[in-house]
């Protein structure tokens, strides 16, 4: 044993690491799919983003570059989303192909298997959005280590949250087609309500309330605050108005804690459900 850990714990850790590694191997062996998956967020940023930015500028909201900078954290989340979802899909796929049984009959705890799987999905998702992150300069976000490191960490947590959500659905719904439908229906409002494309300040009251219940809102907002705080830009206030609970503005760390708590609770729920299935 490498560390002075109890052997049982070390065994679980080793199993989780292997499950994670398997996800990496799949990712690396399926390079085409990974590259194609990157196209979507890039198109999102440079086609939809540029179009909306010009509309925004044309209607007198402020310079177009403001909108692109506003959109940037959201695009990072969008880039992470397909890979995060496919981790859930791979649980379904493992069940279909039979490989899941190999894991289920092993002496490893189900929660460990699930955690390894989700961390694997989150790693792949983070890698994918890192590629988009490298295009930051194109939307006038400067390349600074002090910006990229916290942004990446926030991105990783967000990716994990989305992956775990996919896992909850995957262990609840076992039919592949139903899975993708349910996850799609679940993910779309989470994405649109998160203030990713338009700010909460532009939402009507009922929608703003719904947005506050969306964990992705806090992830996107934390990332946006990170970008704003670490760039010299003075963005127009309507777009970048931070999330507020009544009059209270949660600091980014608290927002990340909300995302983290959501992730842990979801993982617990998924692990419990997973332990009950055969």
């Amino acid at each position: 044993m490498t560390l002075a850990l109890p052997p049982r714990f070390a065994a679980e850790l080793r199993a989780a690491r292997m499950v994670w590694r398997r996800e990496m191997l799949h990712f690396l062996r399926d390079g085409t799919a990974s590259l194609v998956a990157l196209l979507q967020p890039l198109l999102f940023l440079f086609v939809l983003g540029v179009g909306l930015a010009r509309l925004f500028a044309g209607s007198g909201g402020g310079p177009a570059s403001d909108y692109l900078m506003f959109l940037f954290p959201g695009v990072l989340v969008m880039a992470a989303q397909p890979a995060a979802i496919s981790a859930g899909a791979s649980i379904i796929w493992d069940r279909q192909s039979g490989f899941l049984r190999e894991m289920l009959v092993s002496p490893v705890r189900r929660g460990t298997l699930l955690a390894g799987k989700c961390l694997g999905g989150a790693t792949v998702a983070t890698c994918q959005s890192t590629v988009v992150l490298l295009g930051a300069g194109l939307v006038h976000v400067p390349y600074r280590l002090g910006l990229f490191v916290p942004l990446l960490a926030e991105l990783a947590l967000t990716a994990l949250a989305m992956t775990v959500l996919g896992a909850v659905v995957a262990v609840t719904i076992t039919r592949p087609r139903t899975f993708s439908t349910v996850l799609g229906v679940l993910m779309t409002p989470l994405i649109f309500l998160s203030g990713l494309m338009f700010p909460i300040s532009a939402m009507p009251g009922w929608m703003a309330w719904a947005a506050l219940a969306d964990p992705l809102t806090y992830a996107v907002d934390a990332m946006r605050q990170t970008v704003v705080a670490r760039t010299a830009a003075h963005p127009s206030s309507t777009l970048f108005a931070p999330v507020a609970w009544g009059g209270l503005r949660p600091p980014p760390l608290l927002e990340l804690a909300v995302v983290g708590a959501f992730t842990l609770v979801s993982l617990g729920v998924a692990a419990r459900r997973f332990s009950r299935t055969g």
Binding site: R22, L25, D30, S97, G98, F99, L100, R101, V105
Partner: peptide
């Protein structure tokens, strides 16, 4: 050890 009726190998490994 278990060998199931249907395959439980990972074809991509």
């Amino acid at each position: 050890g278990l060998v199931f009726q249907e395959t439980t190998l990972d074809g991509d490994l």
